[in-house]
Design a protein around this nucleic acid. Sequence first.
DNA 1: CTTAGACCTGTGTCTAGAACACAGGTCAAG
DNA 2: CTTGACCTGTGTTCTAGACACAGGTCTAAG
Lengths: 137, 137
Amino acid sequence: MKVTELAKSLRTTADTVRYYTRLGLLKPVKSVNGYKSYSNKEVSRLKFILSARKLGFSVADIMQIINESEDGKSACPLVRSLIKERLEETTKQFQAMLTLRNKMSLAISQWEKMEDKAPTPHMVCHLIENFEQIEKT
Amino acid sequence: MKVTELAKSLRTTADTVRYYTRLGLLKPVKSVNGYKSYSNKEVSRLKFILSARKLGFSVADIMQIINESEDGKSACPLVRSLIKERLEETTKQFQAMLTLRNKMSLAISQWEKMEDKAPTPHMVCHLIENFEQIEKT
DNA sequence: CTTAGACCTGTGTCTAGAACACAGGTCAAG
DNA sequence: CTTGACCTGTGTTCTAGACACAGGTCTAAG
């Protein structure tokens, strides 16, 4: 299997496959023409990687998990612990996004009542530069 | 004003100041000893940049906005239009985060009922590799 | 004056997770 | 044999800074 074939068969991109290959997560054989050739084992390996990515694991996490399992150990304890860390992070980011979203919405609605102004030497855009005060009121 | 002074006075880092300087958003003068020297104009410029960043504008957006205002034009129309784009993006990311968070929580709770398993040649971790089916039920 | 040490400097490199650019290779049709 | 479509690996780019590092500055003590 060539890069693009593998990528298409799992609905991802050739660049992604190449990226994981560079990191050593996939280990294709060099075929005669110099192209990378992926076996069925690589297919299930990639399937695993993509599932883990969708669950929020980082690529570094996945490397760890794979290393653990290649030592013959059960990766499950590691997986359980890592996902808790990632969930915490995701929750934080999620809340940051929520806060930002609300702030942006407020800005848009407040700015509707305000006029455009030309810049001055000490003010690039009054909408932005006065928003902090508006926000507090 | 030196890099660190400027940074501290606006509660940011010297690296951030240096970064904006590299991009040309701040234009310090070289002082005798080769150090960058920032004027009061730079202080308000940086204040503007930091406010805009907090509102979700990208650094590239900010460059655009500043260019507009340096041409003597009102940056307000640009600002109004850019923030709407950024809000859409933020909303999308926010929803993606929400979905991911729920998925992760579901995984954690489902996995509590499942045992650890050793890896097999075609399975790195059954928790992850079987989750898609679990999710659908 | 010298030296020690604290702090500061600019420049260059690194991060995540790919996406993109590019010169060249492969392969089937004509 | 050539054209053209598609494919390849490698190297570079992206965000928004954080970090490393060799060396410079500056104040206080000796």
